[in-house]
Design a protein around this nucleic acid. Structure first.
Length: 769
DNA sequence: TGTATGGATATTTTT
DNA sequence: TATCCATACA
């Protein structure tokens, strides 16, 4: 046999690779070689057990992981890998639905709605129902719907559940209306892709049988991140309810790296796997091949503070390596500069940019770092944040393509009906919408009826020419074999979209043109990678292109060969590794985030801690952690103590580096945007947290949950309230004013809050309403 | 119908 | 701070 399949595997890895039939749970700690195990197991199945490649299904969460997996299998077996189904949950479901969705009453060329599309629909519905937007906003409604779908709860059962609960019953009404709207638009959102596939398997025996027979071996990566719907999907495919099925389901995951609860991930999928699949063999991979001893030690100590875990202790035979570097900067800008100059130093010592990554909790933090990098000429790429495909100009072009591909897609059609301006106004659009919903037809179909709609009158001509333009494009695609690239170019010319931007001539317009050019080159490279269909009908090419861009994650587009520093959230960093990692913004209220500190679910903090664990374990040789004494957040200055997670790392693993100019300059530098309050130049009353206390313990004075004071307004005027008044604070809620005292130029007000007790604050700072 | 303006609001993470 | 939305005005 081919020896190379088994070379270099440790005993546990080998055991997992060679496991015979039956359910298999691989608990793979960070850096323990889980991708290696999956790929080698696939290779083993093909080469040694003579399983046909097309009978194997491997599921991941990102395209990047899927592509890497395919490449690695290919390298091991050298043949057949292209026939293994290796794909993400979402693209697998699209593929299944494209074939069988008609049994659910949808059309096979359905659109995929992204978050923006969803919001457009939801905003319309909330308006239509006349709901108070203060009580119900689109984000909340959509996150409610998403969690229902992740748990496979239909609108019907949701509304039964909601009963007469005021808010909940409104949400469920929105849920069913939303679902109807998507159906008329022949569109599915991300969660639908999974849920509809499950529904398909429930109602279409033939479809289920087809895939059951096809996939005799199923492997799932990052299993800890699966939600209930995905679990059900896997159960169907692996014949969980069929006693005769061998249940050749192999799942790989790490409960300590479960960080997607907010997206519906159900940690019990992994914690209870053995119960769901009796006879499961459990294999633990506990040897870490990635990080130095110190880094691993730090990670183990942090995660040990969590209670709900599968027993597992990562170890490594690597040397201790350098200590973890910790710096508390004065400000987020100093932090950014500090990181940039540290990277610069490493580069001067021969390191390459791509050996570095900067990880943070929130996307907004990338801003300051980006600015420092630009100033210091450090090449970088920001992963995530504002997605390329969510830019306005890109969305516009895509909306054209979507309208051409699927005329029922109302969000797309409405987006472009008056872009570029065709003199079709809100009134006209409203009338067409009404007509459409009255007759249960799509917006685009209603456009064709415009001459029968009252009050449209003089717009009929404009609407008709819009319709014939779209029909014309369809014909180009079908009859003349237009590629996507040609189609986009034609649209840009015909509509004058591009010339309008050129005329504008601003920097912004130039950037938009560049983005459009990038879209065209993305389309071109897409067309290179797929088989051009026979004959002249290129419509399927367009559908595939649209599907492709709907399902790419930003991380998928990272070029592994380009020598740049990667900037990304801790979430995006999962599954990656770097020699040098900078984890920044380790502050209470930021990481762990303020949101979870006030949540009433105590397990939330454990998820934050897992996120911290994920971050630490990304580092191979050098880990630098940092925080800032003051930081601009949402346009206000915050002062946060260092994160509790820092104090969970044993002191002896850490070297503390002084922040540049810490002792002298902390007060000398006037914080940006903060009005000068002390005229006589005496130090202000607060001291930096984390400065050494008498015991010499770096962390002892780290008060958890210290609220950031918010600074706003510049002059202290007498407060408009008096003791005994009830006030409402933007963060602390309702409270009663206890006392007000004047000191220097400011008023100090102390308030007894219902939920937070007595708080004393400068009246100029406190936000009451 | 289109644009300008000011005020409110939000930011935790994303396939 | 940055974006979104409603309102006012051209």
């Amino acid at each position: 046999m081919n020896n190379s399949i088994y070379d270099g595997l440790n005993d546990m890895q080998l055991k997992a690779v060679m496991h015979e039939d039956g359910p298999l749970l691989i608990l793979a700690g960070a850096g323990s070689g889980k991708t290696r195990v999956i790929t080698h197991r696939i290779a083993h199945l093909i080469a040694s057990k003579h399983v046909e490649p097309w009978n194997i299904l491997a599921v991941t969460f990102t395209n990047k992981a899927a592509n890497e997996m395919r490449e690695r299998v290919n390298n091991i077996v050298g043949y057949g890998a292209e026939n293994v189904w290796i794909s993400t949950f979402h693209s697998m479901c699209v593929r299944i639905l494209r074939r069988f969705i008609e049994s659910l009453g949808y059309n096979r060329n359905f659109s995929i709605y992204d978050t923006d599309d969803q919001r457009v629909v939801m905003k319309e519905l909330i308006k239509q129902f006349n709901y108070d937007t203060k009580q119900i906003n689109d984000r909340k409604a959509l996150s409610y719907i998403s969690s229902q779908k992740n748990d496979l709860i239909t609108p019907e059962s949701a509304s039964e559940e909601a009963g007469r609960d005021f808010l909940l019953s409104r949400y469920t009404k929105l849920y069913s209306a939303y679902q109807e709207r998507l159906k008329t638009s022949n569109a599915l959102d991300f969660d639908d892709l999974i849920m509809k596939t499950v529904e398909l398997f429930e109602c279409d025996k033939e479809a289920l049988d087809y895939y059951r027979r096809r996939f005799s071996y199923i492997l799932v990566d990052e299993y800890q991140d699966t939600n209930t719907a995905q679990f059900r999907l896997l159960s169907y495919l692996s014949g969980a309810n069929d006693p005769d099925s061998p249940h050749n389901l192999c799942v790989v995951g790490d409960d300590d790296q479960s960080i997607y609860k907010f997206r519906g991930a159900n940690i019990y999928n992994i914690l209870n796997f053995e119960k769901s699949f009796p006879g499961t063999e459990v294999i633990r991979l506990e040897q870490n091949y990635r990080s130095t001893g110190n880094i691993l030690n730090a990670a183990n100590n942090v995660i040990a503070n969590n209670s709900m875990r599968k027993v597992k202790e990562l170890w490594s035979d690597k040397p201790e390596g350098s200590p973890i570097k910790y710096i508390r900067y004065n400000s987020d800008f100093d932090e950014a500069d500090g990181i940039a100059s540290s990277i610069r130093t490493n580069i001067n010592n021969g390191a390459s940019y791509s050996e570095h990554a900067v990880l943070y909790r929130t996307n907004a933090q990338s801003r300051a770092i980006e600015e420092s990098f630009i100033r210091m000429n450090i090449p970088y790429k920001i992963v995530g944040g504002l997605n390329f495909y969510s830019r306005k100009e890109i969305k516009d072009i895509i909306a054209y393509l979507k309208t051409i591909d699927n005329g029922s897609d109302d969000v797309a059609a409405k987006r472009i009906i008056n872009v570029p301006k065709r003199g079709i106004g809100a009134t006209t659009i409203g009338k067409i919408s009404d007509h459409a919903s009255m007759h249960g037809m799509s917006f685009y179909a209603a456009l064709k009826d415009s001459k029968y709609i009252d009050g449209i009158g003089r717009s009929v001509g404009k609407l008709d020419s819009f319709v014939s333009m779209i029909e014309h494009y369809r014909a180009l695609l079908k009859l003349e074999g237009y590629t996507v690239v040609r189609l986009i170019n034609t649209i840009l010319d015909d509509t004058g979209y591009l010339s309008e931007l050129r005329l504008e001539g601003t920097d912004e317009a130039k950037a938009r043109i560049e983005n459009i050019e990038e879209l065209i080159s993305k389309a071109a490279s897409f067309e290179e990678t797929i088989d051009i269909p026979d004959g002249d009908d290129y419509s399927s090419l367009l559908s595939e292109f649209l599907e492709n861009i709907a399902l790419v994650a930003d991380i998928d587009t990272v070029d592994p060969d380009s020598d740049v520093v990667l900037l990304m959230t801790l979430h995006s960093a999962k599954g990656l590794e770097f020699p040098n990692v900078y984890m920044c913004g380790l502050e209470e209220n930021l990481f762990p985030s303020a949101m979870i500190l006030y949540s009433n679910d105590p397990s939330d903090i454990e998820e934050e801690r897992r996120l911290c664990y994920v971050g630490i374990t990304r580092a191979k040789s050098n880990l630098t952690i940092s925080c800032a004494s003051r930081r601009m957040k949402n346009g206000e200055m915050q002062f946060n103590p260092p994160s509790r997670f820092i104090s969970e790392i044993p002191r002896y693993l850490i070297t503390e580096a002084p922040a540049p100019g810490h002792s002298q300059s902390f007060m000398k530098q006037e914080p940006a945007n903060v009005p000068v309050r002390n005229t006589n130049n005496t130090p202000m009353s607060y001291k930096p947290y984390g400065s050494r206390n008498k015991k010499g313990n770096l962390f002892a004075d780290n008060p958890y949950i210290t609220k950031a004071s918010s600074i706003k307004g510049s002059t202290a005027s007498a407060p408009a309230y008096k003791p005994g008044d009830t006030v409402k604070h933007v963060k602390f809620g309702t409270g009663v004013v206890k006392s007000i005292e004047k000191k220097d130029d400011d008023y100090y007000i102390s308030v007894d809050f219902e939920n937070f007790g007595i708080r004393k604050m400068k009246s100029a700072f406190a936000k009451f309403f």
